[in-house]
Design a binder for these strands. Structure first.
Length: 458
RNA sequence: GUGGUCGUAGCUCAGUUGGUUAGAGCGAUAGAUUGUGGAUCUAUAGGUCGUGGGUUCAAGCCCCAUCUUCCACCCCA
């Protein structure tokens, strides 16, 4: 019999107990903050109809969707090779439509939009929800990048109040404060970017400009200019963009420069006004972490229309660990126009990596079993089981070794599992009702009654 | 999708210009110690060298393919 090697798909991971304890610590912290701010949980299925997902993330996104092969005889529905489909690309697309009609969710926002439209009559608007679930992307894995990873989304839909932008920044601030990660919250506004595009005379090149500008801190100004030219932006426009690319320093100065630039750009002025409101609130409220008006912040997703934000860890190089923004018409495509929403998403896996690298996990979360009964044999076992039930009733995590193995082996078990206390009950102990209670860390042990032990443990 | 990289014991890694029987540390198991873990000592077990093909008298080492790991680009949490 040849046995096969156990493996899991590329870019996916198993989580052993030690990791799960830490992951749950992150999820619990995030969930608590979400709830304190008045958000309610929902869940959606791992798979959606492909029609729900396709076309929402751009061409790149469509390629990164995991598609699910139809069950049954999926070859049945395939029409014969059709003319006019010579190139492999369109043939593949055509074929895919026939053999796969479901796909794994790519993010939580689009399924949420679908959810809102589908359940619009049952929901109370503004609808504030949070959602913590895995998402899948057929990307190539690398540092901080997985094919299956968890997102923790908070969104509010059905209001265009800027108070919610402020609230989301506060949520991010609260969560990262609790986790002990020092961060910078980058904030920008899509309308400001549109204003810039307009002001430099290239309003139709908004996407190209933002994609290029997004790389400013990574590749430097020269490379950005090169890319702008390559993307078909005129020298004249690039020239006009320079003062903005080199804009550094105080938020006040950025406003000043942009106000001048936006003399003839209504959308730019609107964006600045929104930015002013949000930043003023944040300044007045006072956050633990720093925030900044980051003009180079673009964010790829095409559906953002207003505020965009992104959070980066200060002490470790990692992509963004949290990001989101305002989208004016996400539900329109599902037949419910005019619903404005704003939300952010926390990348739990990256947050884990950051905390791990900075060793920010508190020791206290490691505790599992607190006390182990050593097993001496059938009679002692019976005696211990009653006490064990008693401890468990009192909420003290406890267990008994399953058989009367050598004491050495049982002690080793306790040691390796980091169980801090051990109770030994043999013939002597049963006779005197004084149990041997051992502290595994100090090695000390004493003979005391069960009630005293219970007292010490609670 | 593009370019590179890694793979040898459970883990971390040695392994000479291709040359007999592939090694170490840690870990595991047993004992030194029949009611006591961590430290020490002793012994033992553990390998189709990622997989498949090729070159050669001879391959862990060279060639090809493939899978996997990690990294960069594109994009993104």
């Amino acid at each position: 019999m040849s046995s096969q090697k156990p493996t899991i798909p590329k870019g996916t991971r198993d989580f052993p107990p030690t990791e799960m304890v830490r992951r749950n610590y992150i999820f619990d912290t995030i969930r608590n903050v979400f709830q304190v701010f008045g958000y309610q949980p929902i869940e959606t299925p791992a798979m959606e109809n492909l029609s729900t997902l396709m076309g929402k993330y751009g061409d790149e996104g469509d390629k990164l969707l995991f598609k699910i092969l139809n069950s049954g005889n999926y070859l049945d529905g395939i029409p014969d090779a059709e003319s006019g489909m010579r190139d492999a690309g369109s043939r593949l697309q055509h074929l895919t439509k026939h053999i796969a009609e479901k796909g794994l969710r790519y993010d939580l926002t689009v399924p949420f939009a679908r959810f809102v439209v589908q359940h619009q009559n049952e929901l109370i608007f503004p609808f504030k929800r949070y959602q913590i679930q895995p998402v899948w992307r057929a990307d190539r894995p690398q540092k901080g990048r997985y094919r299956e990873f968890f997102q923790c989304d908070v969104d509010v839909i059905g209001s265009n109040s800027l108070l919610y932008e402020v609230e989301l920044a506060q949520i991010a601030d609260a969560i990262f404060s609790k986790l002990g990660i020092r961060v910078m919250i980058h904030i920008n506004n899509r309308k400001v970017l549109a204003g810039i595009a307009e002001a430099i005379g290239a309003p139709d090149k908004l996407t190209d400009i933002t994609v290029a500008m997004d790389k400013l801190d990574k590749t430097g100004i020269d490379k950005v200019n090169d890319e702008l030219i390559q993307r078909g932006i005129t020298y004249e426009s690039v020239e006009k963009l320079q003062p903005i690319l080199t804009l550094e320093g105080k938020i006040k100065d950025k406003f000043k420069t942009l106000t001048g630039l936006f003399k003839d750009s209504e959308i730019g002025r609107k964006g600045l006004e929104e930015m002013h409101t949000v930043l003023q609130f944040l300044k007045d409220l006072g956050l633990n972490n720093k925030f900044d008006f980051d003009i180079t912040l673009a964010r790829g997703l095409s559906y953002y229309t207003g505020t965009i934000m992104e959070v980066k860890a200060l002490d470790v190089p990692m992509g963004s660990i949290c990001g989101g923004g305002r989208y004016d018409d996400l539900t329109g495509i599902f037949g419910l126009p005019g619903m404005s929403g704003v939300g952010i998403s926390f990348g739990a896996d990256r947050i884990y990596d950051v905390m791990n690298e900075l060793t920010l996990f508190p020791q206290t979360i490691q505790a599992s079993t607190r006390v182990l009964f050593i097993n001496f044999g059938t009679e002692e076992e019976k005696y211990c089981l009653t006490l064990l039930a008693n401890l468990r009733q009192a909420g003290i995590p406890s267990e008994i070794y399953p058989d009367a193995a050598k004491i050495k082996k049982q002690m080793e078990y306790a040691n390796r599992k980091n169980i801090p206390f051990v109770i030994l009950v043999g013939k002597n102990e049963i006779e005197t009702s004084l149990l041997t209670f051992k502290d595994m860390r100090s090695g000390e042990q004493k003979s005391i009654s069960f009630d005293e032990i219970k007292n010490l443990l609670s």
